[in-house]
Design a protein around this nucleic acid. Sequence first.
RNA 1: GGUGGGGUGGCCGAGUGGUGAGGCAACGGCCUGCAAAGCCGUGUACGCGGGUUCGAAUCCCGUCUCCACCUCCA
Length: 474
Amino acid sequence: MTVRIYDSKQQAVVDLQPLKAGEVSMYVCGPTVQSSPHIGHVRSAVAHDLWRRWLAYRGNRVTFVRNVTDIDDKVLVNAVDEPWWALAYRIELEFTAAYRAVGVLAPTYEPRATASVTEMHALIALLIERGHAYPALDGSADVYFDVRSWEQYGALTRQSIDKMEPAADADPRGKRDPRDFALWKASKDGEPESASWESPWGAGRPGWHIECSAMSRKYLGDAFDIHGGGLDLRFPHHENELAQSAAAGLGFASVWSHNGLVNVNGEKMSKSLGNSIFAADLLSTVRPIVVRYLLAASHYRSTIDLRTEGGSLEGGSLTEAEAAFGRIEAMLERARRVGELPETDVPDAFGAAMDDDLSTPQAVAVLHDTTRAANAALDAGDSGAALALAGEALAMLRALGLDPADAVWHSGMSASSGAPQSAALTSLVETLLAERREARAAKDFAASDRIRDALAAAGILVEDGKQTTTWSIA
RNA sequence: GGUGGGGUGGCCGAGUGGUGAGGCAACGGCCUGCAAAGCCGUGUACGCGGGUUCGAAUCCCGUCUCCACCUCCA
């Protein structure tokens, strides 16, 4: 069965035809580690993680490379009271933590730009040799890509050079055309020695785009299947990558995949508006699995408009997501009390939706339908049907990386250090519930309700089932 | 100016010609000692104006409007 994917370059959904049958190579643009991760970074990572998991579910061996841009103008600028490499690594760790928290699988490899300077030099030399790049005309060590020499420049975003605005990433005096972009940037006075590498054109550091061309080639080869990233990277970053790699004679990416951006209350997140939602705040306010659910429930290409209530993350989209996902979790718990969930494949409708350009909104609808059907079967006492349906729901959750039982959601402090407290709590609650059971048996509902209210005041929800009473921390 | 994406019920969000995806919220019912949870039911939704068609959210023409990108961006 064929997985279909939207290719940003062709602007159409196409059959994914891997270069090698049964193997898919993906290169995803990771962050420039210059400041803390926000929900947009998390969204991008989850979107590509969903792709990776689905392609693997369909039997492909996926090689997934996501880079870390650890040298860049902003890394240097933001490193005020620490070395630039310390800032870069500190921020990289924050990204790793955020990705892990929302269940993003570790890449097959995660190369840092600074570890591939040699490969960048080789690519730049190749471009000069082929007549598509030149050392700056002003005698600096800058090297530029010559956009006029590559007639397909603009192919990715369908723009013509003449209608583009000039690039501002280097002194235009050294350029043949103002739209030429830097492959190599000469070291400048005042920049740390550690941020400077020798090159055939003089000491300097990489331009922004060349690293991805060099690293994708290094780890995935001259041609690979999918190149992903945020929609905001289409231009100039991906356009320039494409130009470099294609002009160097490389096959490069077969498919370009871009995830949509995240708005907050209808506005683009930006530093000037001060409305950025940082991963650390998000993940300490809302359960990470719910964040992942929220991101997975929207199509990866659409803009997500995150609604907050009076500036608080609680009360808007995230609270709705908690309610919706909580239903599914509750059903799984109900079903597990009846028996063990069988291992099954995902339902066909779910698979068909996922195959169709990762249509997770429809796939999640199937998940909700299955949840409702499982609850109905449980209400009807049909354990066999209930377990079969719950098993299907679990298979879907696993395909989406949303299995509530997965160890990633239970890492950290809570599990171990909380164990004694949890045992003490359970003992107390069970004692109170035993008292309540007696009161109910004696039809002393006033006493019964008093106990339930007291527990509720402590944040513990008591629910009477047909046979048993369950409790949970609200 | 150029390129691209939108406007769907109280809210979010799918859907490219044929019995109203799914979720959140609300209301009614079943269940319950009462609740909660669950299940069942309840909505004359497709920016506006024309057109094509037996039939349009979906196709065509016109029009209004919002957003993103055009060398910092996931």
